[in-house]
Simulated assay, not measured.
Amino acid sequence: MQGDLGIGSVREVNVKSGLPATTSTERLEQLDDEEHILGIRIVGGDHRLRNYSSIITVHPEVIDGRPGTMVIESFVVDVPEGNTRDETCYFVEALIRCNLSSLADVSERMAVQGRTDPIPININA
């Protein structure tokens, strides 16, 4: 991790999802704890994503009468030469599904433990 966990910080991510990539370099573009907004830009890695940026927002929601959370992720990305728009969207959607699954796992562990404080995350890739 380079930086102070603030805007402009860069992290190296090891991709372990089975996607056709093993590393990704991401820069934190936006972070608003009060509004629950996270924005990142992918700036490198061994994948074909170019000019990818994403905004994630988190919203409290009642789901089947129980408190829950709705997570919305929107993205923009250039279609790389040699790929179609559909292939690029398929890859990004698979990446988003993996990220949301990881977020759900962490959230469920926190809920089971009755934790509301942040879980320290080792970001060293």
Rank of each mutant, 00 (worst) to 15 (best):
Q2D: 12
Q2Y: 08
G3M: 00
G3E: 00
G3C: 01
G3A: 06
D4S: 12
L5Q: 08
G6N: 12
G6F: 02
I7E: 05
S9Q: 07
S9Y: 00
E12C: 00
N14T: 10
N14Q: 11
V15R: 00
V15S: 01
K16M: 02
G18C: 08
L19R: 05
T22K: 14
S24W: 00
S24L: 01
E26G: 02
R27D: 03
R27W: 00
L28Y: 04
L28M: 09
E29M: 01
E29F: 00
E29P: 00
Q30L: 12
L31Q: 02
D32W: 10
D32Y: 09
D32A: 08
D33Q: 09
E34S: 12
E35L: 14
H36D: 11
I37Y: 03
I37A: 02
I37R: 12
I37M: 07
L38R: 06
L38C: 14
G39L: 05
R41G: 11
R41V: 09
I42G: 00
I42E: 01
I42C: 08
I42A: 06
G44W: 04
G44M: 02
G44L: 01
G44S: 09
G44Q: 02
D46I: 02
D46W: 06
H47A: 03
H47L: 03
L49E: 15
L49G: 05
R50Y: 05
N51H: 14
Y52W: 04
Y52A: 08
Y52V: 04
Y52N: 06
S53W: 13
S53I: 02
I55E: 09
I55P: 00
I55G: 03
V58E: 03
H59Y: 00
P60F: 07
P60I: 10
E61Y: 04
V62F: 06
V62R: 10
V62P: 05
I63K: 04
D64V: 07
G65W: 10
R66W: 09
G68V: 08
T69I: 05
I72K: 14
S74D: 11
S74Q: 14
F75P: 08
F75N: 10
V76K: 14
V76Q: 15
V79T: 15
E81S: 14
E81L: 10
G82T: 03
N83G: 06
R85Y: 06
R85C: 12
D86R: 12
Y90Q: 15
Y90R: 15
F91G: 09
V92W: 08
V92K: 10
E93Y: 09
E93C: 08
L95D: 05
L95F: 12
I96F: 06
R97D: 15
N99K: 13
N99H: 14
L100W: 05
A104R: 15
D105A: 14
D105G: 11
D105N: 12
D105C: 08
D105V: 04
V106N: 02
V106R: 05
S107L: 07
S107H: 07
E108G: 09
A111G: 11
V112M: 10
V112Y: 08
G114A: 09
R115I: 00
T116N: 13
T116H: 10
T116I: 04
P118F: 01
P120D: 05
I121G: 00
I123G: 03
A125T: 00
